[in-house]
Amino acid sequence: MKPPRSPRPWTIAALRLAACLGMAAAVIVAVPPPAAAQVAEPSGVEGLTVQGKGSVSARPSLAEIDLDVSAAAELTGDAIVKFRDAKKRVHDAFAALKLPDVAVEERGLLLDQKGAAFNPYMMDYGVQTKTKSEVQLSRKLVVKASGIQGMDEEAVLQLVGRLLDVAQDAGARVGPPANAAMMAYRYGNMQPTNLVRFVVEDYDKLKEEAYAKAAADARARAERLARLNGVKLGPVLSVREVSSDNATRYYYSGMMLSDAPTQEEDDGARDRLTTPKFQDVPIRVELQVRYAITPAEPKR
């Protein structure tokens, strides 16, 4: 019986080299590409490039509360009665408040079945097919309290608290739909826990202002640089938007709630700014602008 042959030194060296190269390749792959704002200008491009920043802030003008009204029954007729009563009670409860700036909007009606949901506790137990299915009707209602930008925090708190209490007393479910937690668990998403959404309504106008400010800022910077470097600022050659951030938005993954409309769909795909906090929301715009430059005329 032969003893096991020891590897040769050159083989070890080759393996080490391969490992080092592999690690280097991994590091190169793992390192994220530079952000768009940091992309270096290709050499040979003429002109003067600056970044202009513009920022405006605004107070949310609208508070929104999502309510889930649903009813299930073995007989569809019963489900309709339950659903109709549940919806009516919510509408009646808010109407009884007699608040002119509070409105309840309805979103699309969802018909599905109760009792055929995934088992949330075990990955692959799947649907319990033996459970008798019941017809389930559900609809999202959105309670909207407008004109809150002029209110102080205490008043907003009182108003929102009242709306939440009325909704819960009327039997509505406040917050995301009943299966959202289960689906979030299933797909490893974070479930939003906030009950109220604050909305900056005139977002387009505010954004316009921020862009104007950013453009002006870029112009001012460019002029200063041109002056300091003895060149004359020419026309704008290119403009690139570096960032246009805003406050946290809600995103409902299409995979997460495939049968439920996304928040954007629900809200009519309007471009608007939402935030879970009642505070001044900053709207920031950053533009990268390249100007042509020409030599300054000699002083006579």
């Binding site: 009813a71 029954a73 009665v81 339950k82 009563d85 549940a86 009670r89 819960q168 039997g171």
Partner: peptide, 21 residues
């Protein structure tokens, strides 16, 4: 149940259903 509801004793139709907290 999930709601407090009432069946009409004569017709056995669901008269009302109120969901309570």
């Amino acid at each position: 149940g999930e709601e407090l509801s009432a069946l009409d004793a004569k017709t056995r139709t669901l008269s009302w259903a109120t969901r309570l907290p």
